[in-house]
Design a protein around this nucleic acid. Structure first.
Lengths: 146, 146
DNA sequence: ATTTTTGCAAATCATTTGCATATAT
DNA sequence: ATATATGCAAATGATTTGCAAAAAT
């Protein structure tokens, strides 16, 4: 549950126009705890009778992604999802039940990566780490403790 | 550059039929050093006048993936690619220039993951780590040493 | 006033599916 | 023989694009 304001501010700062569709999408996105898909946003907008075209949703997501305001994830299923996030290097733990995500600060992988670089000869420039599991809420709801 | 035989053997062992299309695809896949897409395989098959239907390619890739003979990757671009691999937990370093991949044995992330689990409350069940960089060949080819 | 952004509908592109036929066992 | 796998073509689904109209600066 981030604030839509931060998204809007970031757009403003970066010199993009603060249009109604972008504001509305910022709000929808901020209301999300976990990941959401482009289709989710379209559906939610429709449900709330906010007129936003499909194309606009994709364009906004592309823009937000470029600005580092959301991050695009690829779930194991192959689905494309997005999560709101702060522009700093980090990872996500993704709940396989409900999709809720938790931010995971950069684990100190740098050392490991340097070692990998040395071993493979690759100059490692970036990486993506996605953790999949079950969040606390779903553990309580579904399985009892443990 | 793996051997097509290993793919074929694995299929056999698992009780699947060794059909012409599967053999042909095993061969095409084994010839790959880096990642490839479903479309790549279709194109290559066509080029070599090996008759293999698109649907068959997707079905074979799905099967190979289930058997852990290839792994499905999601490139930062959003493209879906596959890499041949051995069935054991590991990661890939992917060259952003040529797509060649290097296998990276499981870094000892378990400890980190346990810590993340404790901190976030998630029961972490799996993870994907993808490393992007420039492989030795491309470094030589494009940038000179370093 | 001018430039950016939108919405629509059509176009693309990847992937999946139904079903009759072909093939491996 | 029989079950499994294939090929085709059509269906689906996601994403992109052209372009005239609308909105933000």
């Amino acid at each position: 549950m981030g604030s839509p304001t931060s998204l809007v501010n970031a757009l403003d700062t970066a010199g993009y126009r603060l249009t109604q569709p972008r504001r509305a999408l910022a709000e929808l996105i901020a209301a999300h705890d976990g990941h959401f898909t482009a289709a989710d946003l379209v559906a939610e907008a429709t449900a709330r009778r906010i007129p936003v075209g499909r194309a606009t949703v994709f364009r906004a997501l592309e823009l937000f992604t470029e600005l580092g305001l959301v991050e695009r994830l690829d779930l194991p299923s192959g689905e494309h999802a997005y999560v709101p996030c702060v522009p700093a290097h980090h990872h996500h733990a993704i709940c396989s039940r409900c999709g809720r995500t938790a931010r995971v600060d950069d684990l100190g992988l740098d050392e490991e990566l340097r070692r990998v670089g040395a071993r493979t000869g690759y100059r490692i420039e970036s990486h993506r780490l996605e953790l999949y599991g079950v969040c606390p809420a779903c553990r309580l709801a579904e399985g009892g403790p443990d």
